[in-house]
Design a protein around this nucleic acid. Structure first.
Length: 496
DNA sequence: TTTTGAGTTGTTCGA
DNA sequence: GTCGAACAACTCAAA
């Protein structure tokens, strides 16, 4: 049985890649470089993920070569390249890992029809196939906790998957031109050393280090902005450089306490929940999960959005998050929540404005995870709590960055401010600010909104909207109906 | 069908 | 500084 293994950006690994369970070792292995993504112009629009992707592709090419195989890179649109390649190579099947995204499903449907041989889509992105966890009423869960209980009762890790001992080099058929694996230079990118490094060995090292060290106090430290208490494997999971099954297995085989295992695997179950929810409700990538929110009067003030993106809102933790995102492609989970809460609740901006900004800049930017995270923060996501949960950015800072080290790292103009005032510099005595070299309104902004007023405005707006009263907000309403975040969604094949 | 317990991550107020 | 209750009464999922 001759097989074409089609790698495609969410499965950039050799260990526990489902294709190697399925295919003979006489497999032609290909990655298609779609010019819609692999050009300097396009790479500039998402440089962090491109850097990680390029590093992971180079590592994958090397790893396959070390095992005696060959990963070919072919330029073109996969909808054209894959059917032609399958035919020219006379394969009996094309094997790929399934994507759960609606545009991926659409693409795969089209490809399956264009192919003369079967397109075999393999599970592997999630622990259980999305859509397989159901309530007693056979409906998808809409809140996390019952989903997680059901997941734990159903899921049992049966296998850690295969690790091929050797691969064989299968030639590209005549008429196809192989191109080199893209490099940062070929895409016009300069390496950003602040980003998490791509590649299977790097990712495995990251996981191992986490399990040896901070995982032992994960439940305590995971919320701290000023410690590296989290695993940092989000990009590895997004690109499939680590398989979630291997992560689960590594956690379970580790020496962590049962409580810590449960705490960490809960995060993996959140990932399952988000994919599953997207599978059942593909339109959540552009629409609120809770339909009642469809016409919520979010604003689209470009100036406010610009201040938030640049980290100039005057709320130190919020600003630190924005700057960490641009500099490193990563934001601490709690900082993401505070930043998202601020954009939606304090600034009343449409959550999709923040969502698409994060999707552009996050190295781990994944459609389902990002969208569901933003919707949870905005209040329109899969959450049973009522809509009046509003983070206080000062309280959050004091609680989870007590010494202000996170703020000092990312908002250096405040680095001289005493911990007592660093999360609310406008409350500091004038002398303390002068001593720290801070001139509010000059070296660092005054708060762009007053917390108390902004909080009350959101509550008022939400209350009015949900009681079906006409909403009259100060600056006029703009009932937004986005058709999805548009250009952030690739219509074709390759990872963004 | 109705009822009941519970829901990732909160904030504010007042004792 | 710490603690418990109030916030405003929401919905889901299972019994």
């Amino acid at each position: 049985m001759k097989t074409l293994i089609w790698f495609r950006g969410k499965d950039l690994r050799v260990s526990d890649h489902p294709a190697f369970e399925h295919a003979t070792n006489q497999a032609l292995m290909v990655f298609v470089l779609d010019p819609a993504y692999f050009t300097p112009d396009r790479a500039q629009t998402r440089p962090h993920r491109m850097q990680y992707l390029v590093e992971s592709l180079l590592a994958l090419e090397q790893r396959i070569a070390d095992l005696g195989g060959k990963l070919w890179f072919v330029a073109g649109r996969s909808a054209d390249v894959i059917p032609k390649l399958a035919k020219a190579a006379s394969v009996d099947q094309v094997v790929a890992m399934r994507w759960a995204e609606p545009f991926g499903r659409k693409r795969d449907g089209q490809l399956a029809r264009a192919l003369e041989v079967p397109l075999v889509l393999l599970e592997g992105e999630t622990l259980l196939p999305p859509g397989s966890i159901r309530s007693q009423a056979d409906t998808p869960y809409t809140v996390f906790s019952p989903f997680a209980r059901r997941f734990r009762s159903q899921f049992e890790l049966k296998s850690r998957g295969v690790e091929p001992a050797e691969l064989s080099r299968v030639a590209l058929p005549d008429g196809f031109k192989s191109v080199p694996c893209p490099t940062l230079g070929s895409l016009g990118l300069v390496r950003n050393s602040g980003l998490v490094k791509g590649g299977e060995q790097e990712a495995k090292g990251r996981l191992a280090l986490f399990l040896e060290q901070s995982a032992h106090s994960y439940s305590d430290l995971r919320n701290r902005l000023d410690f590296s208490g989290t695993s940092r494997i989000s990009a590895d999971l997004k690109f499939g450089v680590l398989s979630v099954r291997q992560v689960w297995a590594a956690v379970m085989e580790s020496s962590l306490s049962e409580a810590e295992k449960t705490c960490f695997t809960n995060e993996l179950i959140w990932r399952e929940f988000n994919y599953s929810t997207m599978w059942d409700h593909p339109d959540i990538l552009g629409m609120p999960f809770k339909r009642k929110w469809k016409d919520f009067p979010w604003k689209r003030d470009r100036d406010l959005l610009g201040l938030w993106k640049a980290g100039l809102t005057g709320y130190p933790v919020v600003d630190a998050a924005s700057r960490q995102l641009l500099a490193t492609g990563f934001v601490h989970n709690r900082a993401r929540m505070v930043a998202a809460s601020f954009l939606t609740k304090h600034l009343l901006l449409d959550y999709r404005l923040g969502e698409s900004h994060y999707l552009r800049w996050l190295t781990d930017g994944d459609w389902a995870q990002n969208s569901m995270g933003w919707q949870w923060a905005a209040g329109c996501g899969a959450d049973a709590q009522p809509w009046f949960r509003i983070f206080n950015p000062v309280t959050q800072g004091k609680k989870f960055d007590p010494n202000g080290d996170y703020v000092r790292r990312w908002v250096p103009e405040l680095s001289g401010v005493d911990a007592k005032y660093i999360h609310s510099p406008w409350e500091a005595p004038q002398r303390a600010l002068e001593w720290a070299g801070v001139h509010l309104g000059e070296t660092y902004p005054e708060p762009v909104v007053d917390h108390r007023q902004a909080r009350e405005r959101f509550l008022r707006t939400a209350k009015a909207f949900f009681s079906d009263q006409p909403v009259m907000s100060e600056e006029g309403t703009s009932s937004t109906s986005f058709g999805g975040s548009g250009d952030e969604f690739p219509a074709t094949s390759q990872p963004a």
